[in-house]
């Protein structure tokens, strides 16, 4: 661990990976600004510490995000590592998930992270250093999760803009990493976290099967230990050449490899058609 206390800015910190991350960071002597919709809950969960700045933030509001970032810089002088962790799951077939439900999922998982990145980059560019972690999901790398169409879309979007971001900010000495966790034993699949569509259509058997499996058999039995997940993020933040893509969990790793193999295979199968479209 570096002797210099790094300053972290973590969103969605009141539960799940975000909460574990904040606790480990404070234990490790880092300075941590952490956002949630209700900072009172966050303070209750974390306790008080002079290295800790709990912030009530509406991520969808640029003004609210900007305010949180300015407070962080005012208190700690700089921001070294940003973790866009806030997000939630939405299940349902694309026909079932309403326009409003779909947009709400993008609001937090995509537009909220983009607000943070847009507002924090002036500081990181000025420092000519920094590391942005965007927490996606293995469902942002492969869509082999029936019923998670809108959620996967949000998490794929995170992968897309992070890939671009990494090359955009490289000249300024800023790193970007996509974190793709598999199943970790957090509250992600609990009923107060996973959003289900109001309008469920009986005919979607594959979707219902997936929904039931996630709510019942998978929830509580996830193989991943959140403490190990966040330790990996802290470790990667301390490396000189961090990866762009970081998969967390043997399940995520295996599924990602399967996806790459399947796409490779498909590319070869259709190569003739693909390459037949030039003038």
């Amino acid at each position: 661990m570096s002797t210099q206390q790094k300053v972290w800015f973590v969103t969605g910190a009141s539960k799940g990976l975000g909460l574990s991350l904040v606790k480990q960071l404070l234990n490790g002597g880092y300075k941590v600004a952490a956002t949630t919709r209700n900072a009172t809950d966050l303070t209750k969960a974390v306790g008080t510490n002079q290295n800790f700045l709990p912030l009530t933030v509406d991520l969808a509001s640029e003004a609210s995000v900007s305010d949180a970032i300015e407070k962080t810089v005012a208190k700690f002088g700089r921001i070294d590592v940003v973790v866009n962790n806030a997000g939630y799951g939405q299940i349902g077939g694309l026909e079932e998930v309403s326009d409003q439900e779909a947009r709400a999922n993008f609001e937090v998982n995509v537009f909220g992270s983009l607000n943070v990145i847009r507002m924090v980059l002036p500081h990181l560019r000025e420092q000519r250093s920094g590391h942005i972690f965007n927490v996606s999901s293995i469902g942002g790398f492969t869509g082999m999760f029936p019923g998670f169409g809108v959620y996967c879309a949000t998490k794929f979007a995170v992968q897309g803009f992070t890939e671009s971001l990494s090359v955009e900010v490289k000249p300024f000495g800023i790193h970007a990493t996509i974190v793709s966790p598999g199943y970790f034993r957090t509250n992600f699949l609990e009923s107060d976290s996973l959003s289900v569509p109001k309008n469920q259509i009986e005919a979607y058997q594959a979707v219902r099967d997936s929904q039931t499996a996630h709510q019942n058999s998978i929830n509580g039995n996830q193989p991943g230990d959140p403490e190990k997940g966040v330790a990996a993020i802290i470790k990667i933040a301390e490396t000189e050449n961090p990866p762009l893509h970081l998969f967390l969990g043997a399940d995520a790793y295996a599924v990602a490899q399967q996806k790459v193999a399947a796409v490779s295979n498909e590319l070869e199968t259709w190569k003739e058609l693909t390459t037949s479209t030039g003038f």
């Binding site: 995509v110 996967c152 794929f156 979007a157 897309g160 803009f161």
Partner: peptide, 14 residues
């Protein structure tokens, strides 16, 4: 890229 990644993702699930 984000919008088009989103399209790829939701299509795979669809």
């Amino acid at each position: 890229a984000a919008t088009k990644f989103a399209v790829v993702g939701l299509t795979e699930v669809l």
